[in-house]
């Protein structure tokens, strides 16, 4: 027992030694933001060094949004969380009390420095002629989307389909449920995160259409070649708002509150917004939006507050155990 303890202590000491030197931040994020934060962290480090003379290294951890929130609740000491949807940060506030319940009011635009939406990635030439959400429920169309239980992007996709059905059926809930049920009948496999689904669709060649984050679709196109896939914008979709927050308790403990706040503020600056736009996240800033307008085709975007009355309600009704998604998927 003594030996185990001493080993554990020495490894703790080792990690403490590694930690000395530059300021370290840990940004716990969701799956598709890898490339965004790789760019952004470098830019922020330059900015912070210029402003304060202090070196800052930002460590990244990525995974399904729900899973990442769970890890922070279980003790992954993130200074910052940048997740796919506000419900996951609510969970951190509620279950672990690591930040106040009103966290979303602390930064502009509901603490969402960039937005995104859900679009379609199809195979070259669009052989199944998939143009809009109603094409996804046709028999014989294979739809790839991750599991809404674990993936933030999948929850946005699900709600986008539901919202589309509501808006085309005079807000008839029963018809929307039927629509989404038919859509999920066409889903052959549910991966746990957005990246897994992209790989299933692009690498393994399963399905005819991938419901994808806009940024993830553009990245997939870049990685796998525009000769193999093309992007389809539906007539309307949901405005996805991936929020950011400082995890107060951990930042205070690490003495990084100030730099963590500056990190998030920097996302709202011209440079931060440009980096977001370059990585296919829709910027809030009008200057960046105008500059990158050609990357972001206009489509009708409805919000979760308009159609579902916010994340808490949507989560409870659709994604909690025994909720609508469970009913739909079990009925399959």
């Amino acid at each position: 027992m003594k030996r185990i303890l001493s080993v554990m202590l020495s490894s703790l000491l080792a990690s403490a030694l590694f930690a000395a030197g530059p300021v370290k931040l840990l940004n716990v994020s969701y799956d598709p933001t890898r490339e965004l934060y790789q760019d952004f962290n470098a830019a922020f480090a330059r900015y912070w060094k210029g402003k304060t003379g202090v070196d800052v290294t930002v460590n990244q951890s990525h995974g399904g949004s729900g899973k990442q929130a769970r890890s922070v609740i279980d003790g992954l000491q993130a200074d910052i969380v940048t997740l796919a949807l506000s419900y996951d940060i609510d969970a951190i506030s509620e279950k672990a009390k690591l930040l106040p319940a009103n966290w979303q009011t602390r930064l502009p635009n509901n603490s969402t420095p960039y937005t995104s939406t859900i679009i379609f990635l199809v195979r070259k030439g669009n052989p199944k002629q998939i143009k809009d959400w109603n094409d996804l429920v046709r028999p014989g169309v294979g739809v790839i989307t991750p599991n809404p239980k674990t993936s933030g992007g999948a929850r946005w996709s699900y709600l986008a389909a539901w919202g589309y059905a509501l808006r085309h059926n005079n807000n008839d809930e029963a018809k929307s449920k039927d629509f989404v049920t038919r859509l999920f009948k066409n889903v052959p496999v549910l991966d746990s995160g957005a990246r897994g689904s992209t790989t299933t669709f692009a690498q393994r060649g399963i399905g005819d259409v991938l419901l994808s984050w806009e940024n993830e679709a553009h990245l997939g196109l870049k990685e796998f070649g525009a000769d193999k896939f093309e992007i389809v914008y539906p007539t309307e979709s949901i405005l996805a708002e991936p929020p950011v927050a400082v995890v107060d308790k951990y930042a205070a403990k690490h003495g990084t509150t100030e730099v963590a706040k500056a990190y998030l503020d920097y996302l709202y600056t011209d440079e931060g917004q440009e980096i977001a736009a370059r990585n296919y996240y829709r910027p809030r800033n009008e200057k960046a939006a105008a500059k990158y307008a050609s990357s972001f085709p206009k489509l009708t975007l409805f919000t979760i507050d308009q159609v579902f009355g916010g994340w808490q309600k949507a989560q409870k009704k659709h994604f909690d155990d025994g909720g609508v998604f469970d009913q739909i998927y079990q009925a399959k």
Partner: peptide, 20 residues
């Protein structure tokens, strides 16, 4: 952090899970 020894370890600033 939510486990049996979570609070005890946090008080003593010992990180076991999500660390070496």
């Amino acid at each position: 952090a939510q486990g049996w020894f979570g609070a005890w370890l946090a008080d003593r600033d010992v990180q076991i899970i999500f660390a070496v």
